[in-house]
Nucleic acid binder design. Structure first.
Lengths: 231, 231
DNA sequence: AATCGATTCAAACGCCTGTTTGAATCCCCC
DNA sequence: GGGGGATTCAAACAGGCGTTTGAATCGATT
């Protein structure tokens, strides 16, 4: 009579009710948010009875946690991180990293619901977030730090490396989180021409490499380069 | 009997019930989101009767729209944008702009609820968002474009200027929107030392100026600067 | 003091929410 | 082929939601 806590790796068949509910819940939570999504709608979309949620997951909140985990696992499977052969130059690895990050965030054509769901967690962390950070975000943050350290020739202190890494991620993140506003700000048509995932990846990579002095600056200026601070 | 549509500029006294509700609603919507915030809680916080919302604003949704507008107007009043005397150099203006943006987003010590509310609109645009963009974001986006154009000496095409501007904003935006994750990623204590609004402003400004070739790169590298592309 | 519209209030109205129930049904195993 | 746990189901539950109501109260005007 009591629900099974976790019946191990269930059949990958989508006809498994638990899996179907998990999928429908992810979509619904991603689109509407935790509060606005209703158990009834989720179950209707999954073709299951309302009681199924409480039977398989206990309550709505635990269903949410499970669906976040499920979504992030699935998304990693969909778009795996790049792997490089030993001799790959750091600039190429940076470009691959940024491209992969953007492709995962923006999708090939439109945003997958898994990303929307994870984005909600990042923007307003709940208890599902810390796990997400430790398992998923921190390792890849470390990879980025390694690339940047090599690009800087080991001349930057760790705290500044982290700031540069956050700058790189921030530029990508912005397009996903504030994409609606970006679309309002730039002229119509420019998005498809100059703000595609590929184009943004090239831009972010080039800007970062230029800032580090690996490639020449974006602008060729008449005046001399000043060495000191601004103020 | 029917509620007054908008009784003009009401008394600035906070004892005005309409103003009190608007304030309490902003706080509640910012903290919990539209769905989770309840009319009852808002009215309790405002010291008003539940019926007051419908009396003054018609329904919950229109109260939300009004509270978003109200919040953004108040926030602009709190932290006005910098104004520069005619001769101010572009690098200084960039630093001021970024600093002002970050201060407005992150607050002096903690995030004001007005920003949280506007952030919700940006992340998941509703009808209140377009107005926000046109009245508030686009003009300042234009100012940033002007600064960057001057820094680049007019050598960058408009679409690339916009991308650089979005990179600048993205780096700042990231700290507000994903601040919770940033705090988990960097070692404890580093936030207070190297990720304060001032420190981030310096970092973003320096990185941008370096990328444009206005100041020297962040890292002094042994190897030569390659001119070409990465791929 | 009487009047009348504007405002406030307690109470109630439907409706929808997450959750529970207990019986019906399925499906595997002995 | 029947026993029995696992699963499904329709129905109902209690509680909270946004909103409405109609009377009470206020406050300025005549």
């Amino acid at each position: 009579m009591p629900p099974p806590s976790r019946p191990g790796p269930v059949t990958d068949d989508a006809r498994d009710p638990r899996e179907r509910i998990l999928l429908a819940a992810g979509r619904e939570f991603a689109e509407r948010g935790y509060e606005a999504a209703t158990v009834r709608d989720i179950c209707a979309a999954a073709g299951a009875n309302v009681a199924a949620v409480n039977y398989y997951f206990g309550d709505k909140h635990r269903l949410y946690i499970e669906s976040v985990k499920h979504a992030h696992e699935e998304r990693v499977r969909q778009v795996p991180w790049p792997e490089w052969s030993p001799g790959t130059p750091a600039p190429v690895r940076l470009r691959d990293f940024v491209g992969s990050l953007l492709e995962r965030m923006l999708g090939n054509d439109q945003a997958p619901w898994q990303v929307k769901l994870m984005m909600r967690e990042v923007l307003q962390p709940t208890e599902a977030c810390r796990e997400l950070v430790e398992d998923y975000i921190r390792p890849h943050f470390g990879i980025l730090l390694g690339i940047l350290d090599e690009l800087a020739g080991g001349t930057l202190p760790p705290f500044e490396l982290r700031r540069v890494a956050l700058s790189v991620i921030g530029q990508c993140f912005h397009y996903r989180a504030a994409g609606g506003v970006v679309a309002m700000l730039v002229p119509p048509g420019e998005i498809d021409a100059y703000h595609t995932p590929r184009a943004i990846a090239d831009h972010v990579t080039r800007l970062t490499l230029a800032a580090l002095g690996v490639v020449e600056p974006l602008a060729r200026l008449p005046g001399p380069i000043v060495p000191g601070n601004v103020s």
